[in-house]
Design a protein around this nucleic acid. Structure first.
Lengths: 129, 129, 129, 129
DNA sequence: GTGGTCTAGACCACA
DNA sequence: GTGGTCTAGACCACT
């Protein structure tokens, strides 16, 4: 279910965080859906349970999931308030990336086309609230 | 001139790399302009010269600067034809960011407007070679 | 295992890079095989761990190995499609060397025989992927 | 006459040595022909005379030129004896390069064709003694 | 235990 | 003066 690159220099727990985040954002994992139990996922991926634990803790901290002691971890429904800080960060990242793409020779048109394609890809899903 | 966050998790040399990269991309540091000498920058930022050198070497690998032993380090004029791999990486990052922004409630229109503003900011400058 | 010439003008880390590169190219170090740990190799060669690490990092940049923090450094399987630039460099070096050999009296036949012997040595091994 | 890359990290004197060596090998500079005087060349290339001096000294050491105090420096006629050591070095370099080219995907046929082209290029000149 | 980062301080080659 | 190399030794994050 989760493809990990054990050869990557990115820590495994970080890769897990990104993968799960992506699944949540793309609505593959639905709100309030339960995530696989730590031990189950650990044995499936044949990695250390501590590593899974760390990833889940990180996702909780970043408000993508919530955990109920004794019951498990669940996808947190997206709350679109209080996220202005995170949005600001993302906007800065986006600006940085666009600048670098232009520096490397990408034309404004190419970049805008790319973004339009991307937003419509998501917009066709369930994101256009 | 360069602000560093010594408490950040990101390594100092990596922060330096990003800062300088940004200055080059935004044409604050012009092509062939000399960068501050390793020791000078080290004493200004009160960090170890080896750390600066590591950052400079990293920038050299990434083809943003070139260093001539005995003379100094200089901004490398952007030619960058074979950077399709890097562009691909940036496109992926961009897609990821756009998705997360939509998840956090940003509308397609907002995002596209943001990108348009950004590209024209650079295009209006001196990036349209 | 690795012989170093501490009196050579070539930096230690560069010598190490060349030695290891050679072992990888000649398939003595197999794909995904683990390299000696930084500290282990350092104590074996009685040189500073930082120097070993510099060599390993260099090899990583040049795509001969990959390092995973906390796990180790490993031989990178050769895929190397986009190495036309490197191949061009090698072709130039080869031309330069052949010219100098002829200048020193080597006959075309001798040189071609030498090259044929060399390519079949590798081809007869395990390089014919 | 000599193109130098002042942006290269290779020392200027080293670049000079290589350039002159090449001109001698390719018979552009003929045996016993006088090389430009140090000061003349220095002002032509707008570099420090000491740098030229160092290059000439190096070429003398490597037996490509000879200097007569008070008269100048001259191309040394190629002596094809005593050069077995140098030839051995070149053969080793050649083997190393051929191996790396094969590792990067060059086929034996490609390599041999390349070498044949190169030797005939020189052989058509004045090298086939 | 692994690789990675950083400091302090020394020495070298090049121009 | 410049960048580059190297050492000794400390500390950190990941598994």
């Amino acid at each position: 279910m989760f493809e990990l690159d054990l050869r990557s220099r990115a820590p495994i727990y970080e890769q897990l965080v990104e993968k799960i985040k992506e699944l949540i954002i793309n609505n593959v994992l639905k709100p309030d859906q339960q995530l696989p139990a730590v031990r189950v996922l650990a044995s499936e991926l044949t990695i250390n349970p501590n590593t899974i634990q760390k990833a889940y803790r990180e996702l909780e901290y970043r408000e993508f999931i919530y955990s109920i002691p004794g019951k498990g971890s669940f996808v947190r429904p997206a709350i679109h308030e209080n996220s202005t800080a995170r949005l600001q960060t993302l906007e800065n990242e986006l600006s940085r990336i666009v600048s670098e793409m232009q520096y490397l020779g990408a034309t404004p048109r190419e970049i805008i086309t790319l973004v339009k394609t991307q937003v419509s890809k998501n917009g066709g899903g369930s994101m256009d609230d």
